[in-house]
Simulated assay, not measured.
Amino acid sequence: MKTKKIPLRKCLGCSEGKAKRELIRIVKNKEGDIFVDLTGKANGRGAYICRNTECLEKAMKSKRLNKALEVEIPDKVYDDLLKEIQ
């Protein structure tokens, strides 16, 4: 029997590899829009973060999200992430 491979992604906060479904995806599309992608299927460059506030705070402090998406992240995106985590 063949087992299905689970895609792993690295959290920007804790740097742990976790199943894609356990993480929240933030996307930058071709137009430069940055948003939280709850479906995990939106087109564009994606970055992932765990569903806890500690990881979000670490990623905000070290500006890892800015580096991963190669752009300055607006506060609205962080607010949306915080709402989704809580």
Results as ranks from 00 to 15, higher is better:
70 E>P: 06
16 E>S: 02
71 V>A: 14
61 K>Y: 03
34 I>N: 08
59 A>Q: 04
24 I>T: 15
85 I>K: 01
6 I>N: 08
9 R>M: 13
42 A>R: 05
67 K>S: 12
69 L>C: 05
7 P>M: 08
5 K>A: 15
38 L>R: 13
70 E>R: 15
51 R>Q: 15
84 E>I: 04
66 N>F: 06
29 N>M: 11
80 D>P: 04
32 G>T: 05
73 I>F: 07
46 G>Q: 00
10 K>V: 06
77 V>H: 12
35 F>G: 03
32 G>L: 08
52 N>K: 11
49 I>N: 06
75 D>E: 15
81 L>A: 14
77 V>Y: 04
69 L>I: 05
72 E>W: 15
52 N>E: 15
33 D>M: 02
17 G>M: 13
27 V>F: 04
50 C>I: 00
78 Y>D: 04
61 K>F: 01
1 M>F: 06
84 E>K: 02
82 L>T: 11
49 I>C: 07
60 M>R: 14
3 T>F: 07
64 R>G: 15
73 I>L: 13
64 R>C: 00
12 L>D: 13
16 E>Y: 01
74 P>W: 12
29 N>V: 12
18 K>Y: 06
75 D>Q: 09
20 K>S: 14
25 R>S: 11
16 E>T: 00
46 G>K: 00
46 G>H: 00
34 I>F: 07
84 E>A: 11
58 K>M: 13
39 T>R: 11
23 L>N: 14
37 D>F: 03
54 E>T: 13
23 L>A: 09
29 N>A: 01
18 K>D: 08
11 C>I: 12
12 L>K: 05
66 N>C: 11
8 L>N: 12
26 I>W: 01
70 E>M: 14
74 P>H: 09
86 Q>F: 15
21 R>T: 14
27 V>M: 15
64 R>V: 00
53 T>D: 10
48 Y>I: 02
8 L>S: 11
